[in-house]
Design a protein around this nucleic acid. Structure first.
Lengths: 226, 226
DNA sequence: GCCAATATTGATCGGAAGATAAATAAACCG
DNA sequence: CGGTTTATTTATCTTCCGATCAATATTGGC
């Protein structure tokens, strides 16, 4: 064996024509495929694997993202920020629609966004990594979804909603939200058969909640209101 | 540079006294620390890191586990099988206790088992890996927890529980279960402040559910019973 | 059509991963 | 106490990862 250690045999790769895209278009391609790959494998997926899926060499990624962590940050942005619809808040606030129909419409739209392999798996992977954006997202859900819901339920009970929302109230709405969320996890992450479709599940869960929750909430509020 | 490439400087490690443990005891130590490490980092955590935490050299692990995957399998067993309490089924079936108190007692015990960083994080990591034991665990929950609950709720409604449980019924109990579960995830995985303590959260969620669920379930059963 | 700019590749580095084999030290048994 | 067994370490291999740099091919302006 001569001095040239680690010479790779380098199979005579077919010299495929090398096409160039516009930078920002390529950037989006990269992020999109990264979302796909990281959702499948997790954030430990290799940059070589990603490059291969893009029909591109691995060092090219480093022209668009200074480091892998920056690529991951772009993935976070795509999932957590770009897919959030500001109109959700308006949907929940529109009192011209009865409360049950309103929540139903909201949750159908919301789940149509987050009930995908990509969204849910990246959400869980990111959560397990302990990144801050995950925590911030949850706080956002609490403020922009659960608080408004809690307030409008109060209003249907004929109770003043100016009194600050009780932590226990928020927590109660979390059980509703978590219950719906977990359906998506079972379906898209654990790949379990879910014989009941999503909107039916939402309808049933919501109805039970709206019937039952006031019984729990009302005592707190009467005590609080004096 | 001479021929000796990759000579490690090998910091003069303190020659610590080498104690020997009984094999099975060591085995359990290894599994316990592996649970700890994998819960923190995920299953991609290195065997060297694990060895270091055990004050042991890395190759020693391979005397006890043929491969890393076997070590992981032992961790699965510890989490999914060893921590399952068969008495849960009895608790739920004991009709001498009123239904709400029964469910409360069950969920307090159940969450005292699974609401730990170790359990929840490994459960999620394993789920994302798509391992089969995760799916089997969930099916187990469905059969041994949710089905019995659904049947006993039927009985309190004075309805024949011999008719096979409706998939929609199971799904409704999943929203309860998922809602409670997700509280643990927020607390132990996402490290969020949960101002409401677990048993209070269970009490509120259960009460709302038990009040509301019959309104959803009853129509199905009457239609079904003719 | 040439030239400057830049997107893309080829080659390679240092480090860390899982795994194996041989050497060593502790325990056990007579 | 001597010798065998077995737990443990030392040293090392191979492979894969993130990252860097110089060489090359493509694009766009004039």
């Amino acid at each position: 064996m001569t001095d040239d250690r680690t010479v790779e045999p380098e199979a005579p790769r077919k010299k495929r024509r090398r096409v160039r895209s516009k930078p920002e278009e390529r950037y989006r391609e990269f992020v999109q495929k990264a979302v796909e790959l990281f959702a499948e494998v997790g954030f430990d997926a290799g940059t070589r694997e990603l490059a291969q899926r893009l029909n591109v060499t691995q060092p090219l990624l480093y022209r668009y993202f200074p480091s892998k962590e920056d690529l991951i940050a772009a993935v976070y942005k795509e999932i957590y920020l770009d897919r959030w619809k500001p109109e959700w808040e308006a949907m929940l606030a529109d009192e011209s629609v009865p409360i049950l129909a309103r929540y139903q419409a909201f949750y159908e739209d919301y789940t149509s966004t987050i009930f995908t392999d990509e969204w849910l798996r990246i959400y869980l992977f990111a959560g397990l990594r302990g990144v801050d954006i995950n925590r911030r997202y949850i706080i956002n859900v609490e403020e922009r979804i659960l608080h408004p819901m809690a307030r409008s339920v109060r209003r249907t009970l004929g109770i003043d909603d100016s009194v600050p929302i009780n932590p226990q109230e928020v927590e109660l709405f979390w059980t509703l939200h978590g219950g719906i969320f977990y359906h998506g996890v079972r379906k898209h992450v654990y790949d379990l058969p879910c014989p009941v479709d999503t909107s039916q599940m939402i309808a049933n869960g919501l109805k039970a909640f709206i019937e039952g929750a006031p019984r729990v909430i009302q005592p707190w509020l009467h005590k609080q209101q004096e």
